[in-house]
Every structure is written in structure tokens, then in C-alpha cells.
């Protein structure tokens, strides 16, 4: 077991979930409740990473954030180190790939709340933030939790983007998925098997949770 890689992946997953939670709540809620002209376009953009090959995203990240690009140069001037081949670069990539996993389940969760419930809350004079905190989130929590679990697990498994923009640096960009690949090339099948079993276990738990929770979304208010 490569503990450095596991810890790195766990950190990457935690950061991804924490940063995407507010994004998912805001965007998911907007998509669930509002109708606006570009809604179809926004929904399509949110879902795009589901079908976009990770290597394609990696290529664009290299192009846009690479050392020779304006953005990459600016980042390097500010942070003192390049964005690609760094933990921060991986995090940006991870945030983008996980947008659909964070937003779509939350959207479903908010959609399941009947309009009358929200209207009643507003009629009682509750402020929008209070409605969100006291009514909507408590009702939409299976969606919120599903989004968190899916984003976290998906981050642990991400490979293509990491391979493209990561550079396989222990403790910095060598995630557990990359470590498995590396261990196989080092003919260290025992370590690869251990880490694979761990990721398999996490995936099984994730998918079980997702199914249980999605049944809850439908049942509690249906």
C-alpha cells in the first residue's frame, strides 16, 4: 500500500467535495427551481464532463494552464510554481471533471421538494437563506450526500486527467490510481492488488450508498 498516494488522493477528494458542495447547492438549486433561457445550455455544459474523454480535458488543461500559456504564466508569477504538475492543478482538473457528479444529484434532490412546501415557507416570512437552511437542505439531503459521495469516489478513481497534467510526483500528484499503474510497471503486483482492492471496496460502498439514497429521494416526498 502506498500511503503517500492514498493520503494524497484522500486530500484531493476532500478538497474537491468541500469546494464543490456550495457550487452544487447553488447551481443544482437554480437548475431545479428556475427556468431561464440558457438553462438547456447550462445543463448540457454541466453534464459534458460525463462524456468528455479525460485525456481531452487533460490536453486542454495543459494548453490553457501550461507554463507557456498566459494563465499558466500568471499563476507561476503569483504562486511561484507552475499550475500543471502540481496539487493545485490536479484540484482544478478534479473540480471540472466532478461538476456533473456534484450538481446533478443535488438538482434531483431539490426537484423532489414540492413547490407548495417552499411557497408555504416563503409565506411564513422566512428569508431565502432560512428556507434553504431549514426547509430545502433538510429535504434535499439525500441528493447532497449522493453528490458528495460520488464526487469523492470519482476523484479517487480519476486517471486520465491526472496522467496528463500530473506528472506522477510522489506526495504531490501521484494519486492512488496512478500509484497502481506505477506499481504494475514495477512488477509489484502485491501492492497493486492491495490498492486495487481498497478502491474496489470504496466503489462498492459508494454505489450502494448512491442507490439507497436515490431511493430515498423518490420516496420521502413522492
Amino acid at each position: 500500500m502506498d500511503w503517500t498516494a492514498l493520503w494524497l488522493s484522500l486530500r484531493l477528494g476532500a478538497f474537491t467535495v468541500v469546494l464543490l458542495l456550495p457550487v452544487g447547492i447553488f447551481v443544482g438549486r437554480r437548475l431545479a427551481y428556475s427556468d431561464f433561457a440558457a438553462k438547456g445550455l447550462v445543463e448540457a455544459l454541466v453534464a459534458l464532463p460525463l462524456v468528455l474523454p479525460p485525456t481531452v480535458l487533460g490536453f486542454y488543461l495543459l494548453t490553457v494552464f501550461g507554463a507557456t500559456s498566459p494563465i499558466g504564466g500568471m499563476w507561476e508569477a503569483l504562486a511561484g510554481k507552475p499550475l500543471v504538475f502540481s496539487f493545485e492543478g490536479l484540484l482544478i482538473a478534479s473540480l471540472i471533471v466532478n461538476l456533473p457528479f456534484a450538481i446533478l444529484p443535488m438538482q434531483r434532490g431539490f426537484e423532489a421538494i414540492p413547490r407548495e412546501v417552499r411557497e408555504a415557507a416563503a409565506c411564513c416570512g422566512m428569508s431565502p437563506w432560512r428556507v434553504l437552511g431549514r426547509i430545502e437542505l433538510p429535504l434535499a439531503w439525500p441528493g447532497v450526500l449522493t453528490a458528495s459521495v460520488l464526487s469523492f469516489a470519482h476523484t479517487l478513481g480519476e486517471f486520465g486527467v491526472v496522467l496528463m497534467v500530473g506528472g506522477n510526483i510522489p506526495g504531490e500528484t501521484e494519486t492512488i490510481s496512478i500509484a497502481i499503474y506505477d506499481r504494475v510497471q514495477a512488477f509489484d503486483n502485491a501492492a497493486a492488488a492491495g490498492m486495487s482492492a481498497l478502491l474496489l471496496g470504496i466503489s462498492v460502498v459508494t454505489i450502494t450508498l448512491t442507490f439507497v439514497l436515490s431511493r430515498r429521494i423518490g420516496r420521502r416526498l413522492g
Partner: peptide
């Protein structure tokens, strides 16, 4: 030291792209 292994050509490309080796 930390080791990052790959093909020489890929590593050289990553160095050009700003990898902190």
C-alpha cells in the same frame, strides 16, 4: 529524493511544460 519515472521523451515534454523536477 522522490522518483518520477517515465519515458525520457515524455519526461522532457513535461519539463518543457513546467513540471517541477
Amino acid at each position: 529524493v522522490r522518483l518520477s519515472l517515465g519515458s525520457s521523451g515524455n519526461l522532457a515534454r513535461q519539463i518543457r511544460e513546467g513540471a517541477p523536477y
